[in-house]
Nucleic acid binder design. Structure first.
Lengths: 244, 244
DNA sequence: GGGCTGAACTAACGCAGGTTAGTTTTGCGG
DNA sequence: CCGCAAAACTAACCTGCGTTAGTTCAGCCC
C-alpha cells in the first residue's frame, strides 16, 4: 500500500512517478505515539510539518477552565500547514486520538520539494484550501446543525475523506474514536452523543459497533444531515487528467 | 489615511516604501456595493482576490432549508485567500454587511507582486495563517462558549482587529452590523443576542448604542469571555523590526 | 476465570437558548 | 414634520442539550 499522502494528493492532480517518489521520500515514518498523547502543545514553537501516516489525530484547544474543543480531525494522509513556521508559536495543540505514526517533514524539505515540483506545490495549495473549507463547514455544523445532523454530517465527511485514501470498503470504515472525543469535536456532551447515536441507529442511518462504522444508505444519511460534499473539492478537473 | 491592507500587513512585517506602493497600486477601489449584497455566490468561479477597503463583509453559507451561518467577518484590510483560484468553484458565498468598497485583484497581479517582493509574499502567508487561526477560534467559540462568552469574545476579537488597522479610539469602535447578522455569526437567535447584549451591558462590560461599541474595561471583558489574543499573532517579532 | 479499567450506555432533572408574537425605537426619504 | 420600514427590544412558553449519578459492557492483565 502506497503512501497515504500521495493517495490523498492524487485526488486533485495526477502525479508522475518521480513526483510520487519525491513525496514518499520526505514522508517517511519518523515518530510513533500512543493514543491520547500530544504531538505538539499550544505555545510551543513548530519544528516540522507533521503528516499522519497511520491512525487518527486532531487539533484541539483547551480553555482555562478545562473545556476542550477538538477543532479538526487528522486522518491518514492529512498534514498540518506546510507554512506553520511563519507563525512562531502554536496557538493550539496537536494530539493523537489513537496510536499514530507520523512523518515529520522539515521546513527545508518542504521548500525543496515545492520548488523542484510545481505540481506538488499546487497540490499542497489544494490541500490547504480544502482544509480551510472543512474548517468552515465545521463552523456551519456547530452553529446551525442539530445534534443528529451534526453527527451525521461528520460521518459523511469522514467516510469520504477515508475513501479518498482508500481506507473504506463499499459501506464501512474504521471508526476508532471514543464518544467522549466525538463530544469534544461536536460541542456536545458524551451523554448527548450517546443519545444521538442511538437515534441515528434506530433510524437505520448508521451502524456503529466496536471500532467499525457502517453507512448502509449514504444518500439517506446525506439527506438527513444536509451534507453537500462540494466543499471537499474532490472532483478532479477532467481537463487536468491526461497531461502526464 | 493609507491603505488598510498595508496597515494590516505592517502588523507582521515592516514594509519598505516601495513595497507599500506596490501593494497600494494593486489594492485600488474597483467595486462598490450596498449593504446586504453578494460579492460572489456559492458555486460560482472565483475571478479575483477581494480586498475590503471600506465597510464590513462576510463569508456565509446557507443550508437548503434556509438556515444561514456567517462563517467569518471581513473588516477593512482583510482579503480572501490569495489562492482561491486553485479551487474552481466557491463552496460558500461572500456578502456585504454594510456598504462596502472592494479592491478586486487579479490572479496575475497577486503572482507578480509576490514574486517581485518576497516580504509581501511572506506577509500574505502570515495573513492566511491568521485567518485560519481565527476560523479555528470561532470553532472553539461555537462549540464551547456560552452566549455571553461568545459575544464578548467576538467583541474582543473585532476590537483588536480594528485597532490593527487604526480604526479604534482608546475604548471604542464602529460596530455597524445588525443583531440578526450577529445571531447568524454566533449560531444564536436574534432574540437571544438581544438578551445577551442586555446582560453584557448590565454587567458594565460593554456599551453599544447606534453603530458604536465601547469596551470600558477591556481586561474585564477579556476575562469574562476567556479571550486569549495570542491566536491573532499580532506581536511583531522584535528581531524582525529593524532591518529596513 | 476473577478483577480491574475505561468505554458505552441510561434515567431524571435542570437550564441555556429557541420560537412565536408581538411593541417600541431609530433612521430616513419626501 | 410626517410616514414608513427596518432594527431593537420584550414576554411567555417550549425544547434540545447539559448535568449528575449512576449501571452495564468489553477488553485485558494476572
Amino acid at each position: 500500500m502506497s503512501n497515504p499522502l500521495v493517495r490523498k494528493l492524487e485526488n486533485f492532480v495526477r502525479l508522475s512517478l518521480e513526483e510520487k517518489q519525491a513525496l514518499e521520500k520526505i514522508a517517511q515514518p519518523t515518530r510513533r505515539l500512543g493514543a491520547r498523547e500530544d504531538v505538539i502543545r499550544d505555545g510551543e514553537r513548530p519544528r516540522h510539518v507533521n503528516v499522519v501516516l497511520e491512525g487518527w489525530a486532531c487539533r484541539y484547544k483547551q480553555l482555562e477552565d478545562g473545556r476542550r474543543q477538538v477543532i479538526s480531525i487528522f486522518l491518514p494522509g492529512d498534514l498540518c500547514d506546510p507554512h506553520v513556521f511563519v507563525l512562531r508559536k502554536m496557538d493550539h495543540s496537536l494530539g493523537t486520538l489513537t496510536p499514530v505514526v507520523l512523518a515529520e517533514i522539515s521546513e527545508a524539505a518542504i521548500r525543496d520539494v515545492t520548488l523542484q515540483y510545481p505540481r506538488i506545490a499546487e497540490a499542497l495549495w489544494w490541500e490547504m484550501l480544502v482544509t480551510a473549507a472543512i474548517q468552515r463547514e465545521w463552523t456551519v455544523s456547530l452553529g446551525q446543525r442539530l445534534a443528529t445532523e451534526r453527527l451525521g454530517h461528520l460521518f459523511c465527511e469522514l467516510f469520504l475523506r477515508l475513501r479518498a485514501v482508500g481506507m473504506t470498503s463499499e459501506t464501512s470504515c474504521e471508526f476508532p474514536i471514543t464518544q467522549a472525543d466525538l463530544g469534544d469535536a461536536m460541542g456536545l456532551s458524551t451523554v448527548h452523543i450517546n443519545r444521538t447515536l442511538k437515534e441515528l441507529r434506530a433510524a437505520g442511518l448508521i451502524r456503529l459497533r466496536g471500532r467499525q462504522l457502517t453507512i448502509p444508505d449514504f444518500p439517506a444519511l446525506q439527506a438527513a444531515s444536509l451534507f453537500d460534499p462540494s466543499y471537499l473539492h474532490y472532483e478532479r478537473d477532467p481537463s487536468a487528467i491526461d497531461d502526464d
